[in-house]
Design a protein around this nucleic acid. Structure first.
Lengths: 138, 138
DNA sequence: CAATGAATGCACTTCCATTGCATTGATTTT
DNA sequence: AAAATCAATGCAATGGAAGTGCATTCATTG
C-alpha cells in the first residue's frame, strides 16, 4: 500500500501540502469536479495555484479532463479502469440533468465507433445525459 | 419546393433580412460554424443580433448546437436525417484535429449505449476526433 | 548556509456567452 | 392611413472561465 506521497513521487510530481490536499479532495469525490468546486473547497488557496495543480496532475497522467457539454471543464482522478492515456480508450461519462453532476462510467466500455471512409478516428468522447442513479430514486 | 421564407414561417419564425442571410449562410456550409464564423461572414451585423438569430433558430428546432470539446459552441442546421429534437437521437460529430473543422455525421447511426442500473439515458453526445476525409488526403 | 529551481499568489488579459436597454422596424388595430 | 403594439436590432456592458506574466515564497541540493 503506497502512501499518497509515494504515489505522487512515482509519477514525477513533487509533493506539496497543496497538492496533497487537492489529491485527497479529488480522491474522496466520487463525481467529477470543476475548478470552482476545488476553489470552494479551499477558499484560502489561490485559483491559479489550484488551476496549475490540476494541470500538473493532468500532464502527469493522474487526472483527466471531461467535457460533458456544460461548457465547464470537469476533472477526475484516473483510476479503476481508466486508461485515458490510451488514445482509443472510450471516455464514457454520464451527466445528470437533475443534480448536474457528471460521473465516470469507466467500467462501461463501448463498442468501436465506425466512421466513414477517409476519416481517421483518434479519440472518442461520449457523454450520456439523463438521470443518475441517485436522482432516479434507485 | 418551399421557399426559405415559407419554411421559416412554417417554423413560427418571423422572416427578416438578417435571418434569411444567416439561414442561407448555414445552409451552404457543409461544416458546423461558430458564432465568430457567422460574425466574420456578416461584418456589418452586430454580434448580439447574430447570436440571437441563431438562438431563435435553435429554439424553433431548425439548428442544433454542437459541443465538440474545443470549448467553443458550434452550430449546424438540422437536416438530412438530423432528428435532434428526438431525445434518443445520437448526435454524432467528427472533429478534425488538423483543420479544426467539425462535421455532422448524421447518416452514421450508433448502437444504443448501455448505462448501469439506476441510470436513465435521455440524450447522448458523441464526438469523434481525428483526421477528416479532406485532411487525410482521400 | 547559499544557491537554484520549482511552487505559489496576485494582477491582469483574453475570449466567449449572455443580458439590459434604447431604438428601429414591421405588423396589427382602430 | 395613423396610431399603437410588439418583435428585431444595435450598442454597451457584464460575467464566467481559461490562461499568462511576474514577483515572491518555499524547498531541495550542493
Amino acid at each position: 500500500m503506497k502512501t499518497i506521497e509515494q504515489f505522487l513521487e512515482s509519477k514525477d510530481i513533487r509533493v506539496t501540502a497543496m497538492r496533497l490536499l487537492v489529491y485527497k479532495f479529488l480522491a474522496e469525490k466520487e463525481v467529477t469536479v470543476t475548478l470552482s468546486d476545488i476553489e470552494n473547497a479551499f477558499a484560502k488557496a489561490d485559483r491559479t495555484t489550484l488551476y496549475r495543480t490540476v494541470k500538473t496532475f493532468e500532464d502527469k497522467g493522474i487526472v483527466h479532463q471531461i467535457d460533458d457539454g456544460t461548457g465547464i471543464t470537469k476533472y477526475a482522478l484516473c483510476e479503476k479502469g481508466c486508461n485515458c492515456e490510451i488514445e482509443t480508450d472510450l471516455h464514457l461519462h454520464f451527466h445528470c440533468n437533475n443534480c448536474g453532476e457528471t460521473v465516470c462510467l469507466t467500467e462501461h466500455k463501448i463498442p468501436q465507433i465506425k466512421v466513414p471512409d477517409g476519416f481517421v478516428s483518434e479519440n472518442v468522447n461520449l457523454v450520456v445525459k439523463g438521470i443518475c442513479d441517485k436522482c432516479s430514486g434507485q
